[in-house]
């Protein structure tokens, strides 16, 4: 099983990279973009088939290392 973890800055925490990308898109005349948020994705290959256990484990990984919950939110998808 794979766990796909998306980590992004919390709403309310200014995303400078997103802002820079947004600005660059505007200067390329892509005017329809209202907002840009840059996130990172971490893909973990797990040796278990137990989804509930995997969710528990990956949540712990996010809390302890993968995300800094002072500034970041995380979403976990198991596939």
């Amino acid at each position: 099983m794979k766990a796909i973890v998306n980590i992004s800055l919390k709403a309310g925490v200014l995303d400078s990279q997103g802002k820079a990308v947004h600005h660059a898109l505007n200067s390329l005349n892509f005017d329809g973009v209202e907002d840009v948020r840059v996130a990172k994705q971490i893909i973990l290959k797990l040796d278990t088939a137990d989804k509930a256990q995997a969710m528990l484990d990956v949540t712990k990984m996010c809390e302890e290392l993968l995300a800094n919950t002072v500034i970041e939110d995380y979403e976990i998808e198991l596939v």
């Binding site: 800055l9 925490v13 200014l14 400078s16 990279q17 820079a20 800094n68 002072v70 500034i71």
Partner: peptide, 10 residues
Amino acid sequence: PGALKRNESL
């Protein structure tokens, strides 16, 4: 307390 982010100017 707190965290350090990328500089606003990048």
